[in-house]
């Protein structure tokens, strides 16, 4: 994508794209995999994810969003049921 010129961007330095267009998931080495059987649906992984990369409706088994997950491993560490494994 060629970069826009001065007449094609908003004035005042207002950003024109949402960060969701930027996929930080590329950063990760390990990714979290949730064991649906072990998951107790406590929401810890959702609550403590710095990157809003755990999708959860408050009821079912949460789902990592690998587009944004940076692989920090907090979710696995904070899972009381040890239901999350970090895999390469």
């Amino acid at each position: 994508m060629s970069k826009r010129g001065w007449q094609e961007i908003p004035i005042a330095g207002i950003p024109f794209l949402e960060s969701t267009e930027y996929h930080t998931g590329d950063w990760k080495v390990f990714r979290p995999v949730i064991d649906e059987q072990k998951c107790v649906k406590c929401g810890n992984c959702w609550m403590f994810c710095p990157d809003s990369a755990i999708e959860w409706d408050g009821e079912s088994v949460p789902k990592p969003n690998y587009k944004y997950c940076k692989g920090c491993g907090i979710c696995a560490e904070e899972c009381p049921a040890k239901a999350i494994e970090m895999v390469r």
């Binding site: 960060s19 930027y22 990760k28 710095p50 990157d51 809003s52 587009k67 944004y68 940076k70």
Partner: peptide, 14 residues
Amino acid sequence: LPGHRACAGCGCAI
């Protein structure tokens, strides 16, 4: 939103 560029494991982003 996600897609911000805090380091992995950033406590401040939480």
